Structure formats: C-alpha cells, structure tokens
Amino acid sequence: MTPEPEQRTTPQPKQPTPRRFGSRALRTHIGTIAGVAILGALLWRLGTGVLLDGLRRIDTVTLLVALGIGVVTTVFSAWRWQLVARGLRIRLPLGPAVADYYRALFLNAALPGGVLGDVHRAVRHGQSAGDLRRGVKAVVLERVAGQIALTVFGAAVLLTLPSPVRDDVRTFAAPTALAAAGVLAVLLAVRMNRAAARRGGALRRGLGEVREGLLSRQAGPGVALSSAVILAGHVAMFVVAARVAGSAASVAVLLPLAVLALVAMGLPLNVGGFGPREGVTAWAFGAAGLGASSGVTVAVVYGVLSFVASLPGVVVLVARWYTGLRGYPSTAPEPSADVSSAKIAPNDSVRLASSSFPFSADPREGRPMTPDSV
C-alpha cells in the first residue's frame, strides 16, 4: 500500500502588526510638544504684545553685548570641556573645542529639545578620538560640572536673598538633602550587593573617571573657575535682558529670578529654547510683584540674545561644510600594492561621509566632528 503524498501547505504571509499611532513620534517630540503648549498658553493668557514688545526693544548695542558675553562663556565652556577631556586622557585642542562648542550651542538653540548639539559634539569627538565612550563621558561630565555650579550658586541665592520661593526652599532644603542622601545610600547598597568582580571594575572605573575629569589637581581648579565664569555670564545676560525689557529691579532682586529661569532652561521641554523658561519667569516675576507680562518679556529678550550669541556656530557649520567639499589632503603614506582593498575601504567611507552637508568636520586627530545625523 503506497503512502499518500504529503500535502504541502503554502505558508500564509504574516499580517503586519498594527503600529500604535504616533507612539514613537510622540515620545521623540514630547519635549517640543510640551514647549509649544507652554508657550501657547502664555501667549493666549497674556497676548502676543509681550512677545512683540520684547523684540522691539532689542537694538544693535544690545546684540553686540550679547555676542561679547557669548564669546566669554563659550571660550570658558570649551576650556572646561578640554580640561575634562584631558583628565579622561582624550586629546582636544582648545581652538577646535571653541568652534565645536559654538556649533553645539547653535544646534541646541535651533533644534527641538535643547540638547542635540551636546549629543552632536559628544559623538563626533568620541569618534575622532577613537574612544566613543570616553568622548561621550567627557561631554556628560562637562555638563554635570555646570549643573553642580548652578546648584551650589542657586541654593545659596535662594536661601539668602528675598524671592518668591525662599520660604519654600528653606522648608524643603533639609528634607530634600536627607532624601538625596537616602537615595544615594540605597544605590550604594545595591551596588555593594552585586558580584565583586563586576562591582569592582565598573564602580572603580566610573569613580576614577569622575575624579580625573572633575576633581583632580590638574582639572579641578580650572573646572571650578570656568564654571563660575560661565554662570556669571548667564546671569549677566539675564540682567541685560531685564534692563532691555524695562525692568528697574535691582540685581539682588533679579538674581533669584535668574536662577529660577536658568533651572527651567535645563529642562529639555522647549521649542527653539522657548517654553519652560518663559513660564517660570512669568510666574517668578508675577510672584515678586514685578508683573507676569514683564517676566515673559525678559525671558523672550533673553532667548533672543542667547540665540544671537550662538550665531557664530552657523559660521562653523558652513566652514566645515566648505572644507569637506574641498576634500582633505592625505598625509598618510601611499599604501603598497599588496595592501588589500578591504583595509582601504573604511578610510574611503570616512572621507565620503565627511562631506555631508551640513554636519561635517575636519577628521584630523583629536578634532571633534559633527555626525551625519543626530
């Protein structure tokens, strides 16, 4: 008896899994959406007059002052970045660091989220230095140094000078400090319970990099000095914006308000830098009796001046693009005939990628470059 032929069934194509509508896009642009919502609510509440009034008050002298403050803060920011990178044993010349910091500032101001410029310089510096992890960590530690300076200065100002939040800060300062200490203790306990080999390597390496990048004798004093100068520049820019907006409040009154605005600017919930800064400044000026509309005007002027201070980054982008179009002279010796094409291909791909507009840079040793996409 012959067996029946096996019946072959044609496999049915898999039905595509339905995607959740806009879930990924929503997560990606949640900061921009929040910034637009905050700014829209302010304009609906206070009208567009405060925005236009702030723009009308800006003159040429004010723009030149903003550019001058921007030069000081950018050079010291690049120096701080160089010190941290040197502590992590990554080469970073000061000149290219200044140029790439300007480029990062412009991208932070022009692109949604306010942090893509920092991602920019972190990735490309790591790639050009041959160590992506340390390149990214250098930028992270450099930004952490700035946040530490703002935290220390802000706590001192908000605890001592009159402000709408002084009583609240005094009330919650001790519990917050205890809570932070408790969280740190829990994290350390969790790390201590891990395997000895894993715990020792990762923890020692991380703490060592923080110590060498921020707290060493070579980097520590320079990082502290540069952070103080940068913070003073941001506060000076806020005071200039307040004077341009017509506020006659003293510097002692404006300092706590400037701290609150700078803290709000650290939130990645903005569109072109606008959003939480305007909302917090409007509330702070209103609570201080200076008028919420005046606060929005000051924040708008500050945003415009900060953007103007970052405009040299456009020159850097164009210059790097033009240099990439011209190509780079090869300084390496010509490969011999027995060298395989597989070894030459990566160099060719890097050369081609470096000419992509507008995110290109000179891929010389130690020079941060801009990624093809962020």
Rank of each mutant, 00 (worst) to 15 (best):
P5H: 10
T10P: 04
S23H: 10
S23K: 11
R24D: 04
I30K: 07
I30M: 12
I33C: 08
A34T: 15
I38M: 15
R45H: 15
T48M: 11
L51N: 00
L55V: 04
V61W: 15
V65M: 07
L67Y: 09
T73E: 05
T73S: 07
T74E: 04
T74Q: 05
W79K: 06
Q82T: 07
V84A: 11
A85I: 07
L92I: 13
G95C: 05
P96D: 00
P96I: 00
A99F: 00
F106C: 14
P112D: 09
G113K: 05
V115F: 09
G126F: 02
Q127V: 08
D131M: 05
D131K: 03
L132E: 13
R133W: 03
R134Y: 02
G135S: 10
L141A: 12
E142H: 11
Q147V: 09
Q147N: 14
L158R: 01
P162L: 11
S163V: 12
R166L: 12
R166W: 11
D167A: 13
F172L: 15
A177N: 10
A177I: 14
L184V: 14
L187Y: 09
L188S: 08
A189C: 01
V190C: 06
N193E: 10
R194A: 05
A195L: 10
A197C: 02
A202D: 03
L203I: 06
R205S: 09
G206R: 00
V210G: 10
V210L: 08
A224Y: 10
S227T: 02
G233A: 03
H234K: 04
A236C: 06
M237R: 00
V239Y: 08
V240N: 01
A242W: 00
A249M: 05
V251A: 01
A252P: 02
V253M: 13
V259R: 00
V263G: 13
R277A: 02
E278P: 03
T281L: 11
A284W: 10
G289F: 12
A292R: 07
G295K: 06
Y302E: 01
V308P: 07
R326M: 13
G327M: 10
Y328F: 14
S330M: 15
S330C: 15
T331F: 12
T331Q: 12
P335K: 04
S336P: 15
A337P: 14
S340A: 14
S349W: 14
S349A: 13
P371V: 02
P371G: 03
